[in-house]
Computed example of a mutant assay.
Amino acid sequence: MTVQLSGRLQAIADLVTCRAVLADVGTDHAHLPVWLCETGKIKSAIAMDVRKGPLLRAETSVRLAGLEDRIQLRLSDGLEQLRAGEADSIVIAGMGGILIRTILQKCPDRAASAKELILGPQSDPDQVRRQAQNLHFRIDREDFIREDGKYYPLIHLIPGEEEAAYAEEELFFGPCLLRDRNPVLKEYLLRRMRTTGQILEGLKKHSTESSRRRAEELGKEKRLLEAALNRYEM
């Protein structure tokens, strides 16, 4: 084995179910496709990145693993250099949710042709879940990882329609995570609740228009956090 996965990448690898071709968007060092090929979990991979530097690092990883015949490297802005139907699994992780949403919006035919999407937004996960619905994918599984003091939601999607519309707190924090009462998510929610409460208390000392708007935003966030935490009491 030539690579060791971080906890976050291992959790992503655990969500891969299709054993054929995987496309890794924003591959960086290509550790994920290398590990998946070395362990026999996939047959081949297409490792893509928008920058040449990460692709050079990926090339080194692939060469050291002796996987040049199984992992293709492509300079690609999102999914642009992937053909529709070319990959069974598509991983887009390690970037913000708005960027992931944009990648899916720009190449909907490529995304919709996959058998599974594994998405790891580092912010704005609600935007990713909304866009997945637009592509007629449904959330099959989710995970929530804490690594080096940061939290990472992971979303596994398969083609199909959701049986019911998501509640607002489900879009933000994950329907499967809330249903399963994920303990790491609960830790995150409690932490966010404390921080939000402290900021709201501080804003009470100010009467500017900007502080009022900020208090309104945080009030909405607090209500979402409360709704999510209530799921743990049901």
Rank of each mutant, 00 (worst) to 15 (best):
I139A: 15
P159K: 09
Y166C: 07
A112M: 14
I155V: 09
A165G: 09
D180P: 00
Y166R: 13
C176D: 10
I158P: 07
E116F: 04
V128F: 02
D140A: 05
L135P: 07
Q131I: 03
L171M: 12
A167G: 14
P183C: 13
N182L: 11
R181H: 15
G120L: 02
E142D: 12
N134C: 06
L119M: 05
F144D: 10
F173R: 12
P159C: 09
R181C: 11
V128Q: 02
I158C: 08
I145Q: 06
E170D: 08
Q133W: 01
R130L: 11
L178P: 15
G120Q: 04
Y152R: 10
G174K: 14
I158T: 11
V184F: 11
E170A: 04
F144W: 12
G174I: 00
D126H: 11
D143Y: 06
P121N: 01
E162N: 11
E168R: 13
S113M: 06
E168F: 03
R138Y: 11
E168N: 10
R141E: 05
I118M: 05
P183N: 14
A132V: 02
Q122D: 04
L135T: 06
N182F: 05
P175L: 03
N182D: 15
D124C: 08
V128E: 01
E162K: 05
D148S: 15
D148N: 15
L154I: 10
A114M: 09
S123V: 01
E163K: 09
E168Q: 09
R179L: 09
G149F: 00
P183S: 15
R141C: 04
P159T: 11
E162W: 00
F173S: 08
Y151A: 06
R141H: 07
F137K: 14
K150S: 08
R179T: 05
G149K: 00
E169R: 02
R181Y: 03
A132F: 01
E116L: 03
P121L: 01
L157C: 11
P183K: 14
E163S: 08
A167Q: 12
V184R: 14
N182M: 07
F137E: 13
E170Q: 09
P183F: 13
P183Q: 13
G160P: 08
I145S: 07
L178W: 13
